[in-house]
Write a protein that binds this DNA or RNA. Structure first.
Lengths: 252, 252
DNA sequence: CGCAGCATCCCCATTCCTTGGTATGGCACG
DNA sequence: CGTGCCATACCAAGGAATGGGGATGCTGCG
């Protein structure tokens, strides 16, 4: 009865109050859907410092040891495929998503030997902020519960959202506020326009554009345009979808 | 009967054979779920490559005219919120996701007047490749079909995947790649450092920093530092945590 | 009404960025 | 052992950004 099941499990996941509780409820969800294992990882985008991410799983110990010992995370084809698919995918479809190297096939073979036969993985990305994936896996003698993949898709996404909530905390209101005009000027700056070009676009003087950007910098206590645009993106004053597709929309 | 409904509609969406067919099936899906309108947009991030995006919708004509006439795409709060949530969200929850300016509220008010009362929007990103969003909307006298939001979540994601399939095809073009040094220089640029400051930090000549940034701009076919940093963030070359280490540690 | 906030415009001096070049050494791969 | 890629370094010119002034008019709010 997927309907009741979905509602019950999704409720549990969204109500998870800490990471160990999230572990339990996602584990239970994986069993109820007909899977044998699960793994959830959630990473904040960070290139310099140590990764402060989440890794919950109930994979066999042997696999976890191999995975860590050989640092397989960096060459995991499942992770790579997460960057290539908007929806969840079954592991057996990996070759349709990414080019598989010999090492990739080897890695999957080792997994199969250790009890991870096939899986269904849901990946999510928030540009500039975080990425995560949630996998539901079956043992060798079984096959993926086809009727449950859509449910897995949902619950996996909810689990990732929960992991994010428990990791980064609630959205903190930005310390500053921009006016509409300031935001507009910052947007065009992020689109790569100069003050002069922006002044033409907005139909105002170049000096005014400079002034708006000056005010925006002062408010956020920043001293360069690039930092200002990064900051505006971080705060949600402007969006990625606003920056890059504007040109083809404008040209017709 | 959400179960049959979901299966039937998801089948139609995944089988869509061209964009106009996708339009029909998503439109039908929105009606069956209890919505009055839908809008789907899907954008590729490769500006120099195939310059194609998708915009399908059945919003009122008046709204489309206003939207284009005032270039509202650049200040659409719904699109900005897509960068801040891993799951779909109701428009009424926008203030919890992003800071709302006066212009934002005005925009939503105009939408309401033209028949777009509330909506549920699903956003998806593939780092370095594409972004999209799919909205399901109800008219003024109605409210969101609460029991259908999870279904909308699923179908919206499938519709985005279909849009991607029909746009980029099976072969994904190779993304732009930065060298380590280029990424490092871009990162310090996003942090607001000048070329000279960066040269001190990295222990190399200022000219070399300029050179790395020059190469990075050439690779991504961009012409300004601000656009370069936005692009690097979007592609996941750098992350917010790299730039503003104080942000996510702020509240917990 | 007064006042704060916003949007608009202008000037100037200094610094920084962008674009076009050239050039050397290291390293990997076929 | 050449070829390509990367990191490094330099030069020159023109355009753009930054930070410091100042100024006007409008709107909303107590």
């Amino acid at each position: 009865m997927p309907l009741h099941l979905t509602e019950e499990l999704s409720h549990d996941i969204t109500q998870a109050f800490d990471l160990s509780n999230l572990h339990s409820v996602v584990q239970r969800a994986s069993r109820r859907m007909g899977f044998d294992h699960f793994a959830l990882n959630f990473d904040l985008h960070q290139h310099h410092a140590s990764p402060d991410g989440v890794l919950l799983h109930d994979y066999p110990d042997t696999w976890a040891q191999v995975y860590v010992a050989f640092d397989l995370a960096g060459q995991d084809p499942v992770r790579r495929a997460c960057d290539k698919s908007l929806t969840g995918f079954a592991w057996r479809d990996l070759p349709h998503l990414i080019p598989m190297t010999k090492g990739d096939r080897q890695m999957l073979a080792i997994g199969r030997e250790l009890g991870l036969a096939d899986g269904y993985t849901i990946g999510r990305h928030l540009p500039g902020e975080s990425s995560g994936s949630c996998s539901f896996v079956v043992r060798a003698e079984r096959s993926l519960p086809q009727g449950m993949l859509m449910v897995a898709e949902l619950l996996g996404a909810l689990a990732l959202a929960a992991a994010r909530r428990l990791t980064v905390g609630p959205a903190t209101p930005p310390p500053v506020r921009f006016t509409d005009r300031q935001r507009e000027c910052v947007l065009w700056a992020a689109r790569g326009k100069t003050a002069y070009e922006t002044s033409i676009i907005l139909g105002i003087s170049e000096e005014t554009v400079i002034q708006h950007l000056k005010m925006a910098r002062e408010r956020s206590a920043l001293h360069s345009r690039s930092e200002l645009t990064s900051f505006a993106l971080l705060c949600g004053f402007i969006g990625y979808q606003d920056i890059f597709p504007w040109w083809w929309r404008a040209e017709r």
